[in-house]
Design a protein around this nucleic acid. Structure first.
Lengths: 228, 228
DNA sequence: CCAATGCTTCGGTTACGGTCGAAGTATGAA
DNA sequence: TTCATACTTCGACCGTAACCGAAGCATTGG
């Protein structure tokens, strides 16, 4: 009818509860199988199958077949960002799914957002890296300074490998819980991976929540120079 | 079922074609009446009425009653940003509503995005202002430098009035057509208003398209120092 | 007070889409 | 080859929600 892209098509894709659950589960960045996603969505595998094909032709997910398994993941970071933005609207309008369960405060503190760290800790890390001159921000474009280069390398990140990959090293991503920017992109993923390897924090299986250990939290804050 | 905000609720709100048309029409930033929106959506006023009440309780729109008229507008810039982001996904997935009509190229060049200038021209204006040191960018936070202060005042913007208002003067907004940042916020609106007052460009009624006159385009580029 | 306009509510129809059982295909293991 | 697993397709059912005609309020103007 009117001009512009067909926004209703994809919005209605996200609008079904089962599909929204599937997409939410994929927000961890991990690729999941069709049966796992059926469990997440609370529907049978047949139903999930039709949902998954719709998501795929809609361009929201991509599929990799491996033997008799089918691994589904989000089509890209832009999809994850739209989902986070929608969560921001939903949270702002006061439409929380559960009346703030016990997991909610953990989620606000630290969670996985498409394989990088989000929540208060993610924001604190990003802010500290900007304050210390490791990251330079210019609009949506974030660049790693020479000092930042040294810093992340010293932290154990294989920067050369990241730069070889085609995905951007640094990206900005917006939080639904605090409406602030945090670090996404290859570097964001690498940092979270390193934090997990060091045992500072652990993802909770089947959830986006990330739990820091007491010692790990201290080490994390010291390493990145997070004050207060 | 799962943790986090209820994303499906609002996504399904946007997912209905009639409501999507309504929201798209409101992207101009202008407040429209219920009957006007019914026309935009291509449904009767009764149907539109139920849609509008759903959008309102969903927190996507706000309403101001004036006599027997009811003026509806988007609830805020964050809603507009989510809509733009969704358009970005839809365009990326190749799901354009019309097979790119004649109005489409005009839209990509210049259009209204919640009362400020978007499209190539909006991006060019933003980039030039950053390059000339009028705007300073730090994450999502954009600040007007002293030099920028002089510049916009010299252009005829009543900056004091903007600062008195509670809305932020500068905001970042993302384009669906070019996936680049442009200037939103009170200043963004004021600049577009000034451009219209000077007769450099005109909004096309009933559309988001903005058409520059030949002379106006030259004056615009000269004023903001846009090269090439 | 009546008429006209703008919007809402009600009732009833229709259609689309989500859902699952059952059967069908493909891949891998025994 | 035979069985088990992972997923898809088919068919039928059901519920929800979009839709409009008609009537009902509310506000303005004469």
């Amino acid at each position: 009818m009117k001009e512009g892209p067909d926004i209703a098509r994809i919005a209605s894709l996200i609008g079904d509860p089962a599909r929204a659950n599937i997409l939410g589960a994929l927000m961890t960045g991990k690729a999941l199988t069709a049966t796992e996603l059926a469990g997440e969505a609370g529907v049978t595998v047949q139903t999930a199958s039709t949902h998954l094909s719709k998501l795929e032709v809609g361009g929201l997910t991509v599929v990799r077949k491996s033997g008799r398994h089918k691994y589904i993941s989000l089509a890209g970071p832009d999809v994850a960002e739209v989902l986070e933005a929608l969560m921001g609207l939903a949270a702002g309008a006061g439409h929380m799914r559960t009346r703030t369960g016990p997991a909610d405060s953990v989620l606000r503190d630290a969670r996985v957002c498409y394989n990088h760290l989000a929540g208060s800790q993610g924001i604190a890390m990003f802010d500290a890296m900007v304050a210390r001159g490791f990251l330079q921000v210019n609009g949506d474009v974030i660049t790693l300074t020479p000092a930042g280069n040294d810093f992340v390398t010293g932290f154990g990140v294989d920067l050369a490998a990241l730069q070889r990959a085609r995905a951007p090293v640094c990206r900005a991503c917006l939080d639904w819980s605090a409406r602030r920017t945090h670090l996404a992109g290859g570097l964001g993923r690498a940092l979270l991976a390193r934090i997990e390897v060091l045992g500072w924090a652990k993802r909770q299986s089947g959830s986006r929540a990330v739990r820091f250990t007491t010692a790990g939290r201290g080490a994390f804050r010291a390493q990145f120079g997070i004050k207060d």
